[in-house]
Computed example of a mutant assay.
Amino acid sequence: MKHCIYLLFVVLVFTGCKKEEKEDPLDILTGKTWKYSLVDKNPSTNGTSISVPFNVLADCEKDNTLQFKRDGNLIMYTGNAKCTLNESETRTLSFSYNKQTKELIIDGIKCEVLELTKNQLKYKAPVSYQTGYVYVMFILE
């Protein structure tokens, strides 16, 4: 009887445990249409070395969406709210992503990915101001 219980326990352990497979970051990045967000679903990934301000969205940007394509193109779709009268419906930029360094380069601008999950893409990027460059955090969901 003791052997039967032990055997049952071993069978349950091996059949009940499923190996968790990590999804490829590029699959996550290119697997959905992203939208800007100001809600950080996971503040613990912000880092502790410096405080980075969030990107401030204009009302006309809140309905924009982005699609990272496997061919290295980032398609930005303008929503119904336009920032200018003659704003085009789409804009195509180049991008690349380095899984090892977590560096996302968008149209030549190097960004540091802080989090990349199915629920959230969070990265910080240098933004030019009159006083120089400031790192700003962008959140996409």
Rank of each mutant, 00 (worst) to 15 (best):
N80S: 12
A58R: 09
F54H: 05
S88I: 02
A81R: 14
Y97K: 08
S37C: 10
G72Y: 06
A58L: 14
S51K: 15
V136D: 03
K69C: 05
D71F: 00
I50A: 12
V127C: 03
L140C: 13
T78N: 11
T15Y: 04
M1G: 12
V10H: 00
N46L: 15
L85F: 14
Q130A: 14
K69W: 04
K110C: 05
D71P: 01
L116Q: 05
T45S: 10
E20V: 15
L12E: 07
L121M: 09
D24K: 11
V39Q: 06
L114Y: 05
F95N: 01
V136N: 03
T101R: 05
T84M: 05
K18T: 10
Q100A: 11
D40P: 04
I75H: 00
L114P: 05
I28Q: 08
F95T: 00
S44C: 14
L93W: 06
V52T: 14
S88A: 15
V56C: 10
F138T: 11
K19M: 07
G79T: 01
V134E: 06
N119M: 09
Y97V: 00
Y135I: 08
L8N: 03
L7V: 07
P43A: 02
I109S: 09
A81P: 01
N80W: 07
M76Q: 09
L116R: 05
C60E: 01
E103M: 05
T131D: 04
K122D: 01
T45Q: 12
V134W: 00
Y77R: 13
D40N: 13
K18M: 10
D27K: 14
Q120F: 03
K41W: 02
V113Y: 07
T101Y: 02
T33A: 09
D71W: 01
P126T: 07
R91Y: 13
D59G: 01
K62F: 15
F138L: 12
I5N: 02
N73F: 10
D71S: 02
C111R: 00
T92W: 03
T117Q: 03
V113A: 10
M76C: 09
G108Q: 06
F14Q: 08
L114A: 12
H3A: 11
A125C: 08
Q120R: 11
P25K: 02
T131C: 11
K69P: 04
S51W: 15
K124Q: 14
T33I: 10
N73R: 12
V13L: 13
H3R: 11
A125F: 07
T90A: 01
D27R: 04
K41T: 11
Y36N: 10
G79M: 07
K110I: 14
K35S: 14
G132Q: 01
G79H: 06
Q120G: 07
S96T: 12
C4P: 00
Y77F: 15
N73P: 03
T65K: 03
P126D: 11
C111T: 12
S94D: 14
M1S: 11
R70I: 07
M137T: 15
L66G: 01
L26W: 00
N46K: 15
V39H: 09
N86R: 13
C111H: 04
L12Q: 10
M76V: 13
E21A: 08
P126W: 09
S37T: 14
G72W: 12
T30V: 11
Y36D: 06
M76T: 13
S44D: 13
T30G: 05
I139M: 12
G79P: 03
V11P: 00
N98P: 00
L104D: 09
N42D: 15
F68H: 06
N119D: 12
T33F: 07
S96Y: 00
V136W: 04
G108W: 04
